[in-house]
Amino acid sequence: MLRLNDLHASVAADDAEPKPILNGLSLEVPTGEVHAIMGPNGSGKSTLAYVLAGRAGYSVTSGQAEFDGDDFLALDPEARAAKGLFLSFQYPVEIPGVPVMTFVRTAMNAQRAARGEPEITAPDFLKKARETAAVLRIDADMLKRPLNVGFSGGEKKRLEIFQMLMLEPRLMILDETDSGLDIDALKVVAEGVNTLRAPSRAMLVITHYQRLLDYIRPDRVHVLAGGRIIASGGPELAHRLEAEGYDAIREAAS
């Protein structure tokens, strides 16, 4: 589903030369699989997420990226979203004055319109929202409040997964979804995420810690350092990282 080949990308900072962050990253996530990306701070994890989602200022300088066999790097972020790409943000933004329900419904219908599908009806939307909120143990009142305004870190992450379940994307990128969650919330969120595991979907789980991967079991684990994948393996690689640290893996790879 997702194929990255020798990807180089830079981030433009204000008034500074673009800084190369990804340095020849290659990765393939087949349909139906869940892959984890682990790496130390500054290794390029969030940059990878932003590059894939199409954030302005994050530019690919060389290499290829395919989603469903199509080069998608020229697409606007909204076109990528309509194609089925979802990024769960590490730091979700607050939007005062726009209730969660309004935001999600607007997003859903915008994606449907882009795909040439009819709008979701109000009763269908409400039913789906109610069911999804129940899975994630989100209070219905929270959905009436302005998006993320005054929410705790954990509530914001839960809301990200709520949106993901509502939008039913095919390629999901979870950027440090575990940060800000206590262990109970982590389990609830992971359960929610797992409901979207399907032979037709793929997931890229970006995390610092192995803990999340106890609940969202990956098929493959990749170690990102210096803007490249330096090691790949099965779930056991995450445990090795936890036990030995990144430096050991880095040395072994060099």
Partner: peptide, 8 residues
């Protein structure tokens, strides 16, 4: 960017 990522 956040809004556009959600498809707006």
């Amino acid at each position: 960017f956040y809004c556009r990522q959600r498809g707006l």
